[in-house]
Structures are given as structure tokens and as C-alpha cells.
Design a protein around this nucleic acid. Structure first.
Lengths: 317, 317
DNA sequence: ACTAATTATGTAACTGATTACACAAATGTA
DNA sequence: TACATTTGTGTAATCAGTTACATAATTAGT
């Protein structure tokens, strides 16, 4: 399969499908070799039944990892071909108890030889290969159960995207973005308050000239996130992390985290010992971001903001 | 997948199918992650077209290893979604030349990032596994192309069956089988001749008491094959291999080969230097069996049989 | 004891591929 | 030049699974 080597790993799904098909194609012909009138797709169901037990459709489905309609259809076909008999459960009217018929039991004996030969052939291939397909599949099953391909891709996407993000110091030309980004989320969840207007309309005089600073996150050179560090006049805290805002259009690029970390670094560089912040518990992603940054919840302190219902701090060292 | 470990390697087809499905399921959601309205199954076709070239349906199919109707349908869908444009070839009215539209070209750019992330994620899984799925698939593709699973199973079947075959010396109770098995093939392809009746009706006096012998192949203790070694009165040859017959019901169990080898061993044990046989070229499987046993064609010698049109010999040493 | 939730099953529609077939256009050959 | 063969494409049917939905029987909760 020349093509796959050209395309690369992204095509692993297609490649798997094609190998599956190649292997599957021969399966039907293999049954012919043993003169058993048997469809390969029946095999997993047959395998469960082969020792003579009675099972419900659902229990077979669970055992072999198929959906129940699939088993239902397979059983119908096997009944039609005389391999299986159905029986209503006396004590539970929903249950359809299925088991091998005499013919089915007979086939189970015949199939033993085939079983040995196919297993032998597969093991022969496995032994001729340097890389063990059987074990590799098993590992993939495990790894994908631990973390799905989707989530893995998502993480790679996030990392790649966050590499495109630049964190830069505030400049007057970002004044508009600073206000707009904050106004967007504040007025979405709450109402703009007096203190908001003061800070957002006068970033320079209110924040920067008071010993604070603002960082801006650029994505494709567009400001998509902002965060301020306010100098506090408090014996317990040096700075407050505030006015953190990320554009909804730039979500999923880890921008909040990058901004938060950059602000923390700045606070450290400025000799800060303890950071403070206020937020609201309805802002779940924000709260979880603060946790991720290391902030912990602390007891009440008076706040100029109505919307503040949670306070957090972070010890720097 | 507990079940597969219980069933063993025979279920490798099912196991492959399920992994394929798991991987495939996420594929659609991954495209959503990048806000491209794109179906995963389009990808191989898209990949071929992405550099802006024009291709026919068949050439794409060949390149990506799909059937042409599959590509035909995919192209129809992509046209409907505006990713692809069709154009009749001026010089060849059968050809449907397809290429990416402006929208398709645009998507090709967007997809680059996704491509990188998916490749990264797959490589991450690959690196976390001890057994390399990608390389294992590649090896299976190669090994199955060399010799299909069907043929491998067939070979295992043959070996197992031939282990059930016993080669035993002639006894009077096999007289009937000796005649019947030979009569069966002779009268199927030719006509019983005088010499046949003589030998088959009087195995003891004609063959065994003349310094020859007969071996019988038993399968489930039933005689299913016979072969005679006739003492020859000839300066060139010691023995003639003759009256080899295997029941059609017992075909594919390697019985002819086992009988032939056993006869050769006997001839050697009796101090023979050269074996002779006569046959007819319309008996292709027989001729190829004799070749496999080491016999080579030799020039004419008078024969009592009308049907003989080829003669062969084997030097023993 | 009655209603709500859960469980067991079956049916229908869909999916992404295939093979079989049909047909037109181009090419090869006598 | 006429006819057979090959090539390119599309449509229909099939395949082995899926999800969505419907229905009946059982179990749980009040």
C-alpha cells in the first residue's frame, strides 16, 4: 500500500479498514474448505454458544462486544439455518433464550479442526513478522480506552494553537481591546459596574501608573486576551489578578492559562509574595483555570464588586 | 477486549474490525474540531487532489486502493458540497476530470493543521505502545500478498489431515479396495484394459509373489489410497511404480505424496537403483505429483498399456 | 398497588465499503 | 472500415455492522 506511506499516519484508519477487509474476504472461503455451511460473521456468537449453554441476546452481545441488534439478526439467520434454537424464558417473558441445536453442536465439533488450522496460520504470519499485530491491537485498544484519539488530537491542537499565541505587554493601542474583551463577558453574565468603567476606561492611570501592569495575548497579531495585575494596598497581598478576559472566538487555545502564567511570572519578578483574585462561581471555566494556576479559595474580604462571590489566593515563592 | 483473548487468534478479523471502528468513530468528530464540514471518508480522495491537479475517477481509485464506484460516489458528494468540480475531458468523452474547487483548495489549507495534529496524536500512541501497529499492518499487507490467509490455512489443513493418514502394507482384506480405487480413475479417464484386470484381480500372485509390494493409505482406518511397486525384468530399471490411486473423497490430504514417498523408501530398502513409471499427460495432478517426488521424463519404451503416453524415471541413491 | 424507570428484544434506516451489471467512448485488429 | 475488445463511468444490489426508535415485560419507589 504505497499510498499509505505517502499519506502518513493520519490514514491509519483507512489502512486498518483495508487490512480488515483483506482478512475478512478470505474468511468465507476458509469455511468452504471445511464444508461447513457457515458465515464468518456468525463465529463470535457461535463461539459463545459452543459449549451448549443457553444465553440471552443481550448477554451474548455484551460478551462479544457487538450491539444487540447485530446479535439479534445473527441469531435469526442461525435459526433459519438450523444451527440455533430459541426458547422463551418461562420466568421472564422478555428473554429469548438461545442455544445450539443438534446441528449446531455437530458443527461445533467439525469447526474444531478449522479452528486449529486458522489459529496455526495466523500464528505463522505473526511469527514471520517483526512487529506483533495481535499485541499491537491489544495495546491500541488499551491506550484508546485510556484516552480517545479525539482527546489526543484535541491536546495536540491546543499545544499547536498555543504556540501561535504571543503574550505581550500592554500598549495604548490595545486600550480598546482591553475594554471590549472585558465588557463582553461581564455584560454577558453580569452587569457593568462603576468600578469596571473606572478601570477599563483608564487603564493607564488606574492600573499601570499605580504599580500594576497589563498583558495582552495576541493570536495572528490580533489581541484576543487580556489580563491585569493590580498593585494592592493590603498587608496580606501584593497584587490582584483582575480583568482577565479571553475572546470566545479564541477559546480552546489555552490562552487563559498562558496569560495567567505570564501574569504570575511578572508578579514574582516584581517581588510579590501573594496574589489575590475575586470571581464568581457561575464562571466555572474561569474557576477551574484559577485552580490549575494554583489559586486556592480563601475567606471573605470586602470587595468593590457586586458580582464577586469567591476569593482566591496564590502564594508565590 | 477480554473476549478476544479467550477466543484466540482465529478472531483476529473481528478484532481488527472493532479497532477500525473505534478509530473511525472519532474521525468525524476530529473534523468538527477544526470546523471543516468534511467527511472522513473523503480524505483519501481529497489527499490526491489537494495539490490542485486534475484526475480521472479511475486514476484516483487506483491510487488510493478503492473500487471505482466508491470514488465515483465520494466525488459526487464532494461536488454537492462544493469541494470539487467536474469537467468532461475534451479529447476523451469517457473521462470525468475532477479537481478541487476554490472552496476545496481553501479547505486544503485549513486541513494542514489538522493533519499535523492527527499525525502527532497517532505517533504519540505509537510511541506509547511496545508493538508498532503501523509497521505490523505493513508487514501483514506484505505477508498476505505473498501468500493469502486462505492458502496458509489450506496448508495447515493439509498437514493436519496428512497426520491422520497411515500408510500400511497390503493385506488380503484390502484386495477389494485395491481394485475399486484403481478401477474408479481408470474407467473415469480411459477404459479398463486386459493388463489392468490381470493385476487388480490377482494382486497376490501378480505383484507380491513376483517380488513387488503394495502399500495402502488409511484415513480413519478406511483404505483411501493404494500404490504398487512392481519388480521389473529390465537391465535399466529395478521397479515400476504403478497402480497409484487415491479416492476423490480423500483429496487434498497429501495422500498421493505420502504413498509415493513410502513406495520410494521401500524400493530403496529393497536395494533398487532406478524406478520407472508410465502415465498419461491428461492426468495433470498425477504428473505434477511425480515431478514433486523427483521423477523425470524419459524416452519411449514399449508399454502394455494403451493409455500410457509418458514415461518417467527416478534415480535412487 | 400504582406509576416510573429499567431491561430485553426486535425493526427500520443508515453507513461506507464492496461486487455485478450496463453502457458509452476509444482503441486494436483483420 | 467494421467489429471486437478495452477502458471509464455510473447505478443497483449487497454486506456487516451501526444508531434510533418502538414495544413489551420486569423491577423499583412511593
Amino acid at each position: 500500500m504505497e499510498f499509505f506511506n505517502k499519506v502518513g499516519k493520519m490514514a491509519i484508519g483507512s489502512r486498518l479498514r483495508m487490512l480488515t477487509e483483506t482478512v475478512g474476504e478470505d474468511a468465507a472461503r476458509i469455511y468452504n474448505l471445511y464444508h461447513i455451511d457457515f458465515q464468518p460473521k456468525w463465529f463470535p456468537v457461535f463461539y459463545v454458544l459452543q459449549d451448549g449453554g443457553e444465553f440471552t441476546i443481550t448477554s451474548i452481545a455484551k460478551e462479544i462486544g457487538h450491539s444487540h441488534p447485530s446479535v439479534s439478526k445473527i441469531i435469526a439467520e442461525m435459526v433459519k439455518n438450523g444451527f440455533v434454537v430459541e426458547k422463551k424464558d418461562k420466568t421472564d417473558g422478555r428473554r429469548n433464550m438461545v442455544s445450539l441445536s443438534a446441528k449446531g453442536l455437530d458443527a461445533a465439533v467439525k469447526i474444531k479442526d478449522q479452528y486449529a488450522d486458522v489459529t496455526g496460520a495466523v500464528e505463522e504470519i505473526l511469527s514471520q513478522a517483526n512487529h506483533d499485530l495481535w499485541k499491537a491491537i491489544e495495546e491500541w485498544e488499551y491506550l484508546l480506552e485510556q484516552k480517545s484519539l479525539l482527546r489526543r488530537v484535541q491536546e495536540h491542537q491546543k499545544i499547536r494553537e498555543s504556540n501561535k499565541v504571543q503574550i505581550v505587554p500592554y500598549e495604548p493601542r490595545y486600550a480598546e481591546a482591553f475594554k471590549a474583551l472585558n465588557e463582553e463577558w461581564i455584560s454577558k453574565y453580569f452587569k457593568m459596574e462603576e468600578a469596571d468603567y473606572k478601570a477599563l476606561d483608564n487603564a493607564d492611570s488606574y492600573i499601570i501608573n499605580n504599580g500594576g501592569l497589563i498583558l495582552v495575548a495576541l493570536y495572528n497579531n490580533e489581541p484576543v486576551g487580556v489580563c491585569a495585575l493590580l498593585k494592592m494596598d493590603d498587608p496580606d497581598y501584593d497584587f490582584e489578578l483582575a480583568k482577565m478576559a479571553v475572546s470566545p472566538k479564541a477559546q480552546g487555545k489555552n490562552i487563559g492559562f498562558l496569560l495567567g502564567q505570564a501574569i504570575i511570572d511578572k508578579a514574582k519578578a516584581l517581588g510579590g509574595h501573594k496574589l489575590y483574585l475575586e470571581s464568581n462561581t457561575i464562571l466555572k471555566p474561569a474557576i477551574s483555570l484559577y485552580h490549575k494556576l494554583g489559586f486556592v479559595k480563601v475567606a471573605g474580604r470586602p470587595s468593590p464588586y457586586e458580582r464577586a462571590n469567591i476569593q482566591m489566593e496564590l502564594k508565590l515563592k
